[in-house]
Design a protein around this nucleic acid. Structure first.
Lengths: 218, 218
DNA sequence: ACAAAAGTGTTAAATGTACACCCATGT
DNA sequence: ACATGGGTGTACATTTAACACTTTTGT
């Protein structure tokens, strides 16, 4: 039994130095054939947080991702069949965990595909607005959240971390100052491991020290 | 014609050195006789932003206040008659503008009253949770928003400004450092006017220089 | 040997923090 | 004269910002 509101999922990842967002090609009216954020109706007897996880899974194949509320949209004209309120959620996933798994398990959606955030087409409903709000939130919280670490491989190089900062902030940063700042934060664990498979000097790998991070913000 | 979701308004002000929140005593079931945030059903053909302004007015008498979206709540048990989704908004008003005007114009609510944020009773629905989220948002944004200036008289003393910072952050601040920091921001206009009606040395008044503030954050 | 990215320090400026006393006003 | 809050400066520590070259590795 369907409820009278929907949830939408704004799912970001990071791959090849670019910030990406996961979109579905719709197979259902309205907006059939358009690209849209994964989203659907919440069931009558289902908590919204359960629904958003279920729907993320059904439309993308991704499980156990951490979704955080972003905004509610209720414009009278946002949906052609009359006002359908939607609550948008936002999540960050590691590309390596999911690269082969982004495939809808319902046929409401034809496919799921990663788009560079700078190359997103015109989307269904008000989804371009939601994306914009999501990017702003990402930017606001960059320094106070583990967002960058949820989106990177568990072991990452400082250059990868810097690329995320640059992609999210939309500006380039000084390498030395960036590294100094990150070390001073004290929650990066320097590993005795190095990148492999690159044709140049392999970079050292780092991990987030979650304990220290939490201590800092509690 | 009523819609199937509500909006709630979290309205803050500042008076006598304290941060206050505006609550209604309910005259309707459910939660008749309880205190609650001003809130009600959105009309079917009404934009949510219009609704929140209308409802704020009907339940408190306040007009033309700037409300910003805070969070959507949709717990299955939040409303005794089944899930009613609500979108909570947040506003800041000047006590001097409104002190004699907080009076409901509907009889859904018996009265509207300012509560010290530290002395709020158990509220209807999940309104205590919403209040907590609102206070956190206030704190997060304190340095990047005009919140403190919307809540103060247009002409204010530095001590009043400091009291807001202290109330919102929940800690005391050093007077000299606070004043130095505020002057350095460059968007306070020092007036040639002074407090009146106090039985001690009258403090100089200041205004927010909106132009300079906007330049700084755009 | 070349291409590609990794890695590394210093200096100057700006900002933040700790701290205590005299001043002006109304009663 | 006293009670009350208004108003002020200095020294030190920390953080930020600008800036360029050498090292390592794979091909």
């Amino acid at each position: 039994m369907l409820s009278f509101f929907t949830v939408d999922c704004l799912i970001f990842t990071f791959h090849e130095g670019k910030l990406k967002v996961l979109l579905n090609e719709r197979n259902e009216y309205p907006y059939r054939d358009w690209w849209a954020m994964p989203g659907y109706f919440v069931d009558k007897q289902e908590e919204m947080e359960e629904a958003v996880n279920r729907i993320a899974y059904e439309h993308t194949g991704l499980k156990n991702i951490y979704l955080e509320q972003l905004v509610a949209m209720a414009g009278l004209k946002r949906h052609p069949e009359g006002r359908i309120l939607t609550v948008a959620y936002m999540a960050l996933v590691r590309y390596d965990d999911v690269k082969n798994k982004v495939k809808p398990v319902t046929n409401y959606m034809r496919q799921a595909k990663w788009f560079d955030v700078n190359e997103v087409p015109e989307l269904a409903f008000d989804h371009n607005d939601i994306l914009k709000l999501g990017l702003e939130k990402l930017k606001r919280n960059l320094n106070y959240s583990t967002a960058s670490f949820e989106i990177l491989p568990e072991k990452f190089t400082l250059t990868q971390l810097q690329q995320i900062y640059e992609a999210v902030l939309g500006e380039t940063l000084d390498k030395r100052n960036f590294r100094k700042r990150m070390s001073n934060l004290g929650y990066l664990k320097e590993l005795d491991e190095y990148q492999t498979g690159v044709s140049y000097r392999a970079a050292r790998l780092y991990k987030l020290d979650k304990r220290k991070f939490l201590k800092l913000f509690a």
